[in-house]
Amino acid sequence: MTTMSTLSTTPAATTRAPGGKTNGTRRRSVLVTVLRSVLVVFFAFPILFMLVSSLKPDLQIFADLGSWRAFLPVGDVSLDNYIGVFDRVPFGQFILNSIVISGVTVALGILVNSMAAFALARLRWRGRGVVLSLILATLIVPFETLALPLLWWVNKLPSLEADGFSLAFKQGWLDTYQVQIIPFVANAFSVYLFYQYFDSIPRELDEAARMDGAGWFAIYRKVVMPLSGPAIATVAILTFLPAWNSYLWPLMVVQSEELRPVMIGLQYFFQMNISWGQVMAYSSLITIPVVALFLAFQRSFINSIASSGVKG
């Protein structure tokens, strides 16, 4: 089975006797619908509450808590909290930082990991089996194990800094964009996903391209990658989500306001602020784009998550 198998939305689990529903299956489907609906309330109410509260002044939020009004955009509804967010912190800068950091991590991640996977799946060289198993073995090490030694290490690395027109080395990567990007570019799981996918592309295509005089890099760029849309989408989503949501790492490596990503910005905004309405507005602002992306590319999102289950 390849990792990219699609999750069908038409289920295979229950089959119904031909010729109409029996009483039993009808009762069962009523039960299923009721249970599903109760669970919808459980999963949706906090998010609804966040969105609704972001539109109300604090006094009204607390006045509405005891009734259904807590979940309805009624009363003194306005965008004041949103205006407040932009007034009090450089929110535009935070979101730009997060877009740059996650965008560059995704782009470099696709390039670097697919090239590595191509070399492992397509080129013949000594030791590639060993390299592949070593890369897979690192999947068991959670980032949290490495975070503190890595923090010490990046503080020792030299970085090239542009000072006007002259370039100079300074010690330490702390408080830069690169420290939020470069350590997360190479990813063992992405290599694995690409490797699996490349393995399923017929090798005859390589042969044909080589007959036409194409080199390995041309085969990678013009034959294999154009056929790998689903793998690229999966890796993009599985890289984007943690990069956008990243918290532990930027918490330790970013000090300056102008380098702060949205999640650290939110924590900082919360600490300087006692207006829950504004905190909910900030939260909504960083949640809505991701939810919109999810709704637009739902099938790819679900398939990416599902494919992460294949590594076991």
Binding site: F43, M263, S283, I286, T287, V291, F294, Q298
Partner: peptide
């Protein structure tokens, strides 16, 4: 239903923690 159950997953843990 699947979409609704999945919504919290695409909501960042920092947002979720502050909301709760």
């Amino acid at each position: 239903f699947r979409t609704i159950y999945f919504l919290p997953v695409v909501t960042s843990m920092v947002v979720v923690s502050l909301l709760w």
